[in-house]
Design a protein around this nucleic acid. Structure first.
Length: 513
DNA sequence: TTAGGGTTAG
């Protein structure tokens, strides 16, 4: 008989597997080995709670918490922090706050700097930088002072929102308090300035980091590679990769995937494929995101069969396609007019356990509407409503556009008027679609009313709106009104796009003849 | 021995 592992040894294994982020493996170990046989303690129960949190299974986390009380154990501050983090990951801020309040009200488990750090991250994740900074100020007044992690969390969030000046102010403030920045602080700042296209400032920060003997790492360089690629500067990005290799910093899946995306964005699919193959040659470097990126590149070029080959290839490699993968391919089939293939893949996705989200449905609706299958689109819309999914304005925009293009302006108008009863507000795109539909139906004066209404409702028209309505007036041979609108558009700082320009040129040349 | 911070896809 094999000796029974002691609780210490068992916990060590559990800890190591958790560190590798193999959460399901930890849970199956916990269930298979029967902790009741080995012994529960605060450590192993907290690890299991954490794993359920990362798998977005808070229900199970709570049942493990119940186990504490059954066996007479007291959860500690780490257990509570883990639960707060789990709730925040599931976007359940009220429950997270509930635990925090219980900690404050209790005697033996007061919040520590990690508790506050977790809450700060929660605010940042919801885009609420203001609340995050308020909590930072509260910490400064209390016993539990903010540390580097708290500052880094907020600095990063500000940089992501391109509020780099605010981030730099916080950065100076932090240093005045004697908290030295690390490579994470600088990586966030570099990311922020790169997003603004301030390459000189990025170089200055890189020099500063080196002068402080802080070494830029794979994260720092990947940020540079990615932002250069997003700006279309793939050649420069390749140069950064070269620099990394010279400095003995190995580019990882993220670095190379950014390059793949950079080439895809420029339509250079061959070069994207080359980088992808380089990744494949490096063994286990390719992940689901890398496949999705290249699949997306092929779909954008309407090369859906090549995209499907990659999809099959990833399954053969044991990688599980996610909702993003299916959405990309569904969109590709829809844009290629292959609705039957899209329907087949949609069934396959559900059979594989990948849950369709609002985006999946919007892609399917768009495919149906753009392929003259309006009645099926309306039927699908009914199914989406029945599922009680969080229907957004994008879904309505697709349907309204489908109705307009099919000449059903009355139904489009009804749907538009019913938006507020659904708790939704039309956006610029909604107005543009309605204006275009009304112009197609020859109802230009009503289109003009929409143009005025959008301004009044706090949704000012943009360049696209003016182009749409100007084209509408020209098509309806109301040239004098078109000319007035062209002047207004120019005065507002917008310009005519290629297709509007062509129409204007035709109009003027006819006038001359 | 477990909890909070930085990089990739619509």
């Amino acid at each position: 008989m094999r000796p029974r592992p002691s609780v210490v040894r068992f916990n060590q294994i559990l800890g190591q597997v958790a560190k590798l982020k193999h959460y399901s493996a930890v849970i199956s170990l916990y269930n298979q080995m029967g902790v009741s046989r080995i012994g529960h303690d605060v450590y192993n129960l907290t690890i299991v709670i954490n794993c359920y949190c990362h798998l977005n299974q808070m229900g199970f986390s709570l049942s493990v918490l119940g186990k504490f009380f059954k066996v007479g154990l007291e959860p500690n501050v780490i257990t509570f922090n883990t639960l707060i983090s789990g709730y925040l990951l599931e976007n359940r801020a009220a429950e997270a706050a509930g635990i925090f309040n219980k900690m404050i009200a209790g005697d033996n488990c007061q919040p520590n700097v990690v508790t506050y750090g977790t809450l700060v991250k929660g605010f940042c994740m919801r885009g609420n930088n203001r609340a995050a900074i308020q909590l930072l100020r509260k910490m400064e007044e209390g016993v539990c002072k903010p540390d580097l992690v708290v500052y880094n969390t907020i600095i990063d969030s500000l940089c992501k929102d391109t509020l780099v000046d605010d981030a730099l102010n916080l950065f100076s403030e932090m240093m005045c308090k004697g908290i030295a920045p690390n490579v994470i602080t600088y990586t966030s700042l570099i990311h922020g300035v790169c997003k603004l296209g301030e390459w000189k400032e990025a170089t200055r920060l890189l020099n500063e980091i080196v002068s402080k003997n802080i070494f830029p790492n794979v994260f720092t360089f990947s940020v540079l590679v990615d932002t250069l690629c997003k700006e279309g500067m793939v050649v420069e990005a390749e140069g950064v990769v070269e620099m990394m290799i010279q400095r003995d910093i190995d580019p990882n899946a993220v670095t190379y995937t950014s390059l793949v995306d950079g080439y895809c964005l420029r339509g250079e699919i061959g070069k994207a494929q080359n980088v992808f193959e380089l990744m494949l040659s490096k063994g286990s470097m390719v992940n689901v995101v890398s496949y999705n990126t290249l699949i997306n590149g092929y779909c954008k070029l309407k090369k859906i069969d090549e995209a499907m080959m990659l999809f099959l290839d990833m399954s053969h490699k044991g990688l599980v396609a996610n909702t993003f993968t299916y959405n990309t391919l569904l969109d590709g089939f829809g844009k290629a007019g292959r609705i039957q293939d899209a329907q087949k893949l949609f069934s396959e996705m559900q059979a594989c356990g990948q849950l369709p989200n609002v985006r999946t449905y919007s892609i399917l609706l768009d495919g149906l509407c753009k392929n003259q299958q309006l009645s099926r689109a309306m039927q699908l819309f009914g199914e989406i409503e029945a599922k009680k999914l969080d229907i957004n304005i994008v879904i309505y925009n697709i349907l309204i556009e489908g109705l307009c293009i099919a000449g059903k302006i009355e139904s489009a108008r009804d749907l538009f008027c019913g938006l507020s009863s659904k708790g939704l507000r039309p956006d610029v795109r909604t107005y543009d679609i309605m204006i275009n539909g009304l112009c197609i139906a020859g109802l230009t004066s009503e289109a003009e009313k929409f143009l005025i209404q959008m301004e009044e409702k706090g949704c000012p028209p943009d360049g696209c709106t003016y182009n749409t309505i100007i084209r509408g007036f020209i098509h309806n041979k109301q040239t004098s009104m078109a000319m007035v609108l062209i002047q207004t558009m120019v005065e507002k700082g917008f310009s005519a796009d290629a297709s509007t320009t062509e129409l204007i040129v035709n109009l003027l040349s006819k006038d001359c003849l």
